[in-house]
Design a protein around this nucleic acid. Structure first.
Lengths: 250, 250
DNA sequence: TGAACTCATTATGTATACATATATCTCGAT
DNA sequence: ATCGAGATATATGTATACATAATGAGTTCA
């Protein structure tokens, strides 16, 4: 019921944006495919005006690409693009961690991050990590990264990180679920959590360079997960984001 | 004449975007001020539909801020925001330089960058740098940074750098003209050019870390210029970008 | 057979009318 | 005098009609 309420209260523009985004990420609209406004109108059942705004928003979200002669097409990403986006996020989160450290995040501001860290600890402790635990991990992990980003205290940086993380395959939790299907799952989780711990410690001790380096390395776990997932091509269904991957067959 | 042609050929949306951007950067629309669609219609003489698109574009350009209840206001930046944006650009350009170095930019791709470097050398050699030389420097400097960014070969990274550099005070050439009025002008120019030379050298020798570090430091010259310009409050008129600065008086 | 041109179709660009939400100002009551 | 309610004005949200540009199919000519 609350969903129907929110559906009613939300603007047509947002509704269209959500619907189109879903179709792109689920692969119903394929990379390279042109997406005309009228087609989008049919899909979303809203008129051209909000549809057009939704398309523009999806463009700067990075999911669509403007066609020079007008209109939009679904953006296609190479594996390299994805890896670069991950490295990019790592670099920005590294900067955020450095800012937090150098500027002396107050104990009060560090508190939520530490709580989040403790919650994550509890999850990671289980040896065979249950499916639900993985799902909870994804949520908490996202929260940890969001808190860390906030801790930088830099609005321009927060903005950029949010923009990069909007691409599902570049987001901090983008490949965690895929990882759950891997034999190395628990091991990677332990390493990731160790990174989390180190970063908080470094920030607390004002070790900017250390905090930065660790966050950079941390993001490379996502790259590792991606490569592993692509190799054992099982469970790719856990990665809707890969619908955007340029297939080599094309 | 060509200007009139281009004015005619360009879409109303772009025209509105340009007009509004000018007014924001020139300070005719002040930070914090709400900018209603009808007001924008009056200013730009185009109808609400393209005006609205222009406003959305200016929002993700970073010049406007969405108001929760709808509409937009001119974004206000603190001095800290500006400094952070510069550091952010430096970090991203550093990553671009590292990519270029690690991935082995080919001699053929390095050529244009080296030419640009040589052109800059000639300008910098003059001791009292003329006004025109400064202006030429701005152009060439922008070109150098663009070429370097391209050299990373990473579309996602290029995109991000372009986004950051869209803010006038974060762009590589944002404070060069202001610098021209300073007594330290020539000295800073020499240092900047030395950075340029080192970065090219590092890329050529595949020294990724060195290239990255130098580009980071390079961006801090802009921060230095900003501080100097704000201190000797003369020649602030050379910095239209500062129209966006939150005044302490407010 | 292939290249180019024409015309029909379909796309986007723009303006505007209408609907709805939000802010403001006045007036009245406490 | 201050607070609150209601009306008025003004904002944005949405739909749609019309204008214009791009696209593609079919045909004709070299």
């Amino acid at each position: 019921m609350s969903e129907r309420d929110s559906e009613r209260s939300v603007s047509q523009t947002v509704r269209a944006q959500l619907a189109l985004r879903d179709m792109i990420l689920s692969g119903q609209l394929r990379p390279g495919e042109r997406i005309s406004e009228l087609q989008a109108v049919d899909i979303t059942h809203v008129s051209r005006t909000p549809v057009r705004l939704a398309l523009v928003r999806l463009e700067d979200e990075g999911l669509l690409q403007a066609i020079p002669s007008g209109g939009f097409m679904v953006k296609a990403f190479s594996e390299r693009d994805i890896l670069d986006s991950i490295e990019l996020r790592g670099t920005l989160e590294g900067l955020a961690a450095r800012f937090a450290a150098e500027r002396g995040a107050s104990a009060r501001n560090l508190e939520p991050l530490k709580e989040c860290l403790a919650d994550l600890d509890q999850l990671v402790r289980q040896d065979p990590v249950s499916e639900e635990a993985f799902s909870a991990y994804v949520t908490l992990n996202a929260r940890f990264h969001a808190l860390l980003t906030e801790l930088s205290g830099s609005a321009p940086l927060i903005r950029q990180i949010d923009r990069v993380s909007a691409l599902p395959f570049a987001s901090p939790s983008g490949f965690v679920m895929a990882q759950s299907a891997l034999p190395e799952a628990h091991q990677i989780l332990l390493i990731a959590q160790d990174h989390h711990r180190i970063v908080v410690d470094a920030i607390e001790n004002r070790e900017g360079t250390r905090a930065e380096a660790v966050m950079r390395e941390h993001s490379r776990l996502a790259a590792r997960n991606l490569r592993l997932a692509l190799r054992n091509r099982t469970h790719l269904d856990l990665l809707p984001a890969l619908a955007l991957l340029k297939s080599a067959a094309d």
